[in-house]
Design a protein around this nucleic acid. Structure first.
Length: 462
RNA sequence: GCGGGUGUAGCUCAGUGGUAGAGCGCCACCUUGCCAAGGUGGAUGUCGUGAGUUCGAAUCUCAUCACCCGCUCCA
């Protein structure tokens, strides 16, 4: 498929439709009309997302000895988010002008010159139709503690707007309990919540979303170098989950556009059908976070370096990936339509999700060539029994085998195993005990002894 | 949040005031000896939701919810 079609907006509609039809992603609360900005993962979607999260965890935590994990609470004390700057700092009251369609800070009315219609600029014309000032704090707030008394509303808590803060707040405990030494990282995968003004683009901007973050602590002099190293590591990761480097763009966020605490930020962007959008930010956050928590909590968060006998506040590099966004990118990247000849030689469209095998929700379809063959069915059931502890497989005997192949193509199953008459020795002893393995992308087949199936597959899905 | 568009079967859609439809898909059986073959039968809808107008509303009006596009926003 030509690259250009991957940014075709009509492509997105087909992908959304496929996601619902095959059980990847549904609108949340659809039965009751739907909840804006929220999505549910169906049977195949949850497998895909788990594959991504588990691979990320394996690569970044389990296969490294310098990164440990954390799973922080979602409910967060106000003090934490006051210190981080999330409470209060980003909540300027804003007004909209219905005449010129502009949005302005409420305390700056009369100081703007409207770009569209200077003569009817807010605060400068009787024609201005201004909305009431509104707060734009994007955090969800709730109350902790059960109470039927409305006057006693309990203590305020926030749903965390990012996973990062629980890592900084638990920094001391992790250092004290896990024998980590600089440089080291703390990794977390989990839900975060932002009350976005305008959720858009399917799951891309949701109000409830999952992040995969590492806070990598280091000596101050190593921060910039490690930021570059993490950028490369993260680009390799995307390649490993099926998003080629050529489809990713790296934005070196210029001065003035970075968050105020960041000395260096790279955005990793993917060419979605709806445009170039961020998948991950790799940000050098200096010692800002540990600094503010040390100050607000009034407790030292310094690290004692045994080698240099020096006490220091570590700097941090943060590769922060959007999990749902990456899942969406994997689906967009995998989606393909191909013209292939059918049994009668007529050209028809084959829809195929070309997932990296390690990400595919189902690893192998298992089919008897003919359902009526008891020997083939029995052989397939045995193969299913052997493979199932190791991977997701799907047994299917409905309809013709060609249809079953196409069904698996559409959900991205990389391999289909078929037991035929040769497999059960009906055409002679040579091929008895072998099956065909059909490849999703090429539609070509290999023939393998049943005993070799498990290692053959494991090698290709790891 | 502003402006525009769209909501009818799982999906794609037809249906402009008078009994709720098609294609594909799905399920069962038959057929099927490797790429969405064919046959027979079957299930599925408070027409997004709620009000209003009307003898009668999928259809007209209003409100509301959701999705899409363009702005806006994105610590």
């Amino acid at each position: 498929m030509a690259d250009k079609s991957k940014t075709d907006p009509a492509r997105m509609e087909k992908i959304v439709s496929l996601c619902k039809r095959r059980g990847f992603i549904y609108q949340s609360g659809e039965l009751y009309g739907g909840l804006n900005g929220c999505w549910d993962y169906g049977p195949l979607g949850v497998e895909l997302k788990r594959n991504l999260k588990e691979y990320w965890w394996r690569r970044n935590v389990q296969e490294r000895d310098d990164i440990v994990g954390l799973d922080g609470a979602i409910l967060t004390m106000p003090q934490v988010l006051v210190a981080s700057g999330h409470v209060g700092g980003f909540a300027d009251p804003m007004v909209d002008c219905k005449t010129c369609k502009g949005r302005f800070k409420a305390d700056a009315l009369g100081t703007f010159q409207c770009k569209e219609k200077p003569s009817v600029c807010p605060g400068q014309s009787e024609k201005c139709q201004l909305t009431e000032p509104r707060q734009f704090n994007l955090m969800f707030e709730t109350k902790v503690g059960a109470s039927a008394d409305e006057d006693d509303a309990g203590a305020t808590a926030y749903l965390r707007p990012e996973t990062a803060q629980s890592i900084f707040v638990q920094f001391r405990n992790v250092v004290d309990s896990s024998r980590v030494k600089l440089p080291f990282g703390i990794a977390q995968v989990g839900k975060s919540f932002r009350n976005e003004i305008n959720p858009r683009n399917f799951t891309f901007r949701s109000r409830e979303f999952e992040q995969m973050e590492i806070e990598y602590f280091c000596r101050p002099e190593d921060g910039l170098r490690l930021t570059d190293e993490w950028l490369e590591a993260r680009l390799r990761f995307y390649e490993e989950v099926g998003i080629p480097r050529a489809r990713l763009h790296v934005l070196d966020v210029p001065d003035g556009e970075r968050a105020f605490y960041s000395k260096k930020t790279y955005d990793i962007e993917y060419e979605f059908p709806f445009g170039l959008q961020e998948l991950e930010g790799v940000a050098y956050r200096t010692d800002y976070d540990l600094g503010v928590h040390q100050q607000h909590a009034g407790k030292p968060l310094e690290y004692f370096d045994e080698e240099t006998k020096e006490k220091l506040l570590p700097h941090v590099v943060e590769p922060s990936a959007g999990c749902d966004r990456t899942v969406l990118a994997m689906i967009c990247e995998a989606y393909d339509e191909e013209e292939v000849p059918d049994a009668k030689g007529q050209m028809e469209t084959r829809v195929v999700l070309r997932f990296a095998p390690r990400m595919a929700p189902v690893k192998a379809g298992i089919f008897p060539l003919v359902r009526k063959s008891a020997g083939q069915v029995e052989m397939c059931r045995e193969i299913q029994r052997v493979l199932q502890p190791w991977m997701t497989v799907f047994y299917d005997e409905g309809g013709a085998v060609g249809r079953r192949y196409r069904r698996q193509d559409e959900i991205g199953t990389p391999f289909c195993i078929t037991a035929d008459f040769d497999s059960i020795g009906e055409n002679g002893p040579e091929l008895k005990g072998t099956v065909t393995v059909r490849h999703r992308d090429s539609m070509e087949q290999d023939r393998l002894p049943v005993a070799e199936l498990l290692p053959w597959l494991l090698e290709r899905i790891r």
